[in-house]
Amino acid sequence: MVSVGVLGATGAVGQRFVQLLADHPYFDLTVLTASERSAGKKYRDAVNWRLDLPLPESVGDITVTDTRIESLKNVDIVFSALPADLATKIEIDCAKAGVGVCSNASSHRMSPDVPLVVPEINADHLRMIELQRDSGTDGFIVTNPNCSTIMLTVSLAPIRNFHFTDLRVATMQAISGAGFEGIPGMSIFDNVIPYIGGEEEKMERETLKIMGTFDGSEVINAPFTVSASCNRVPVIDGHSMAIWIDIKESVEEVAKAFRNWKCPLKDLPTLPEKSVDFMTQQDRPQPRLDRMKGKGMTVSVGRLRPGIRYIAMGHNTIRGAAGASVLNAELICDRGYL
């Protein structure tokens, strides 16, 4: 078993990490960190557990520590649910201390020697770990993308071999993406907020790195442009998005590509049976009906129309955050990078 910890274990994404790791076949969850006000408490006493399933019994008695390297000496991998401003230094310190970091934070996603990984799309980018080790780092940092970027890029996997140069996306993002305390109820009820700070820029940058080519020394960005418009809507979980892409092939050819696509990976515990589920119903996907497909790891695609236009949707705190990091860690173990 690989010994793992969670940084920022009491927040929205941190709780998802704990839920996914508690009885994982690869990982032994031994360390949970949080702020100083939680340090020293049993996890069950430190956390205001807000997920749909009960707090796993196996983690309730773990004593929470503050987020220091000294607390992580015997850990092989940490999963980072830290805010970006805290993650920047702490994640580097962990990697220098020989700990592997699988990060949901945005701090290092665009660093030239840090892989930004969606396993179904760019598993070979994990070779960038070797660049970090060549620079003298005993551990490593591997990141997963923004919660909306990952839905977009997973949906592109079946159609990436079609030629296109222009991609446009309008998101309808759930309130859980802003964290437990992120949006006051009076701001979001009966409302749509047409701005999420930094989100559009992340989608436009991160997509090109993920879909790009690693040549052994750097990632060459994908040769298309992305234009994003991001909106917050009164949905609890599940980011939806409308996507326009200048593919010249017919709807029938694109639909066939969605239906016939096979994931290049297999036998990873968190990998769903279908990473992309192509739906033919006119009114699907819908967050309430479809977000938990594949235990929250499937991206549903539907409403394919001439143009090419379609809708994609996935669970933002599972596929779009904690589940994405856990899947990355499984791939790291499978490829022998520990």
Rank of each mutant, 00 (worst) to 15 (best):
K96W: 10
T149N: 06
L55S: 04
L152D: 01
M241H: 04
R288E: 11
I196T: 05
K42E: 12
I243D: 00
C102Q: 07
E201I: 11
R284T: 02
D138S: 14
V154H: 08
R319Q: 13
P158L: 07
V254D: 00
T213Q: 10
E252I: 09
R50W: 07
A157Y: 05
A9L: 03
G182C: 04
A255H: 08
A87E: 06
D190H: 14
F224D: 05
S80M: 05
D61I: 01
G60Q: 00
S106G: 14
S155A: 07
M110N: 05
P115R: 06
I332S: 02
F162A: 08
P223S: 04
G323M: 03
E218C: 09
R109E: 09
V117L: 12
F27S: 00
F79K: 03
V13F: 10
N48H: 14
R284L: 06
D190R: 11
G139M: 02
A123Q: 12
E201N: 13
G216V: 01
L32Q: 02
V326E: 06
P272M: 08
Y195G: 01
T143Q: 14
I150L: 04
V6A: 05
R109N: 09
E130N: 09
P54F: 09
G198Q: 08
L82I: 04
D61N: 13
D190G: 13
V59L: 00
S3V: 15
T225N: 10
D267F: 02
T137V: 10
W244M: 10
R50I: 14
L338E: 04
K42S: 12
I247P: 06
S275P: 15
G216P: 01
E206A: 03
V6H: 05
V233F: 03
E201D: 14
A322G: 02
E70S: 14
G14L: 03
I332H: 01
V219Q: 00
P194G: 06
G100P: 11
Y337C: 09
